[in-house]
Amino acid sequence: MPHYLLIVIFLISIFSYGCTNSRLTPQADLPVDHINIQHRIEVANSLFKQHDYHASLVQWEILLSIQPNNAQYKNRIRVLNALIKRRTKVHLHEAHKALKIKDYQTAEWEFLKILAIAPGHKESIDQLKKIERMRAEKKQAKKTKRLMAKREESRIHDIIEEPTQEAAAQDNQQAVFFLEFGIDLYNKKDWRGTIREIEKYLRTNSQDKNAIKYVTLAHINLSTIYEQRGHLLPAIQHYEDIVSLSRENKSDYSEKLMHLRKKLSANYYIEGVKIYRENIDQAISYWDRALKINPENDKAAVRLQKAKKAKSKLSKLNKNQPN
């Protein structure tokens, strides 16, 4: 039987039912002695009239649970299912149309309408997930782009945006946390952690002497560890950070930095001497580094000059050599 006929039957049925049952009592939350079928029928009809087809269907299904052989309930369930199927088809068509022109809002609305009458409709669930995911990803990408641009801007122009009072208070609170946390880490001898956290604080409080003191001490400790292990390059890097950070005792730190530079430069010089006879290129590289670390390393400068000349002579000889 065609769907529209079923719907006509249903509507007439409700109408005639209403006529013959005009004295149905709307039952609210009142004490009962037995299951009130009459009330539930009224609820089911009322929901149908409000176009809440799924809720109405549920009520008829409950009624069928109460009276499993009732043909009238079965008929209503059949009609409602047909109606829901037809509606679903219409909404699905509209949703697909909207998706084609990338009108996601309308598509979302149509898919939700389907789920409101057919809660398990798989395609609607899948499409709604796709729409929601796309929306979330787009939003985050936009935010990240904005953050990157903001950072780049402040990096290039060294401009600090005028924060709102509220934002400034929040930033300050966050910064204080970084300092407190950094000091905690210092007390636990976590020098790297100290530097990492207090540097976050120093971004907004660059003049804080106490914070600078902790970072400086952490750098000194790390530098000492590296020096003791013979890793002079990272030791130097830490002292470079100290010199750029410190406001006090700058000359002392510069002196120590120079001492380390000289020491590493001398090491590179010796390495160059050791390897010169076997590998002139490597020796040149060592003396080159020795000079970069300490431009006043005269011995390295002389050696480098001589080695370069020797290399040049060698390559000329090689060129003139018959094959």
């Binding site: 004295r23 037995h34 299951i35 649970s65 109460i66 009276q67």
Partner: peptide, 21 residues
């Protein structure tokens, strides 16, 4: 004459629902 009389049940059960007082 005017009103349907329904069975006076206090419990009903199907695969999908239990209805009870």
């Amino acid at each position: 004459t005017n009103q349907i009389k329904y069975p006076k049940l206090t419990y009903a059960e199907s695969e999908d629902y239990v209805v009870l007082v």
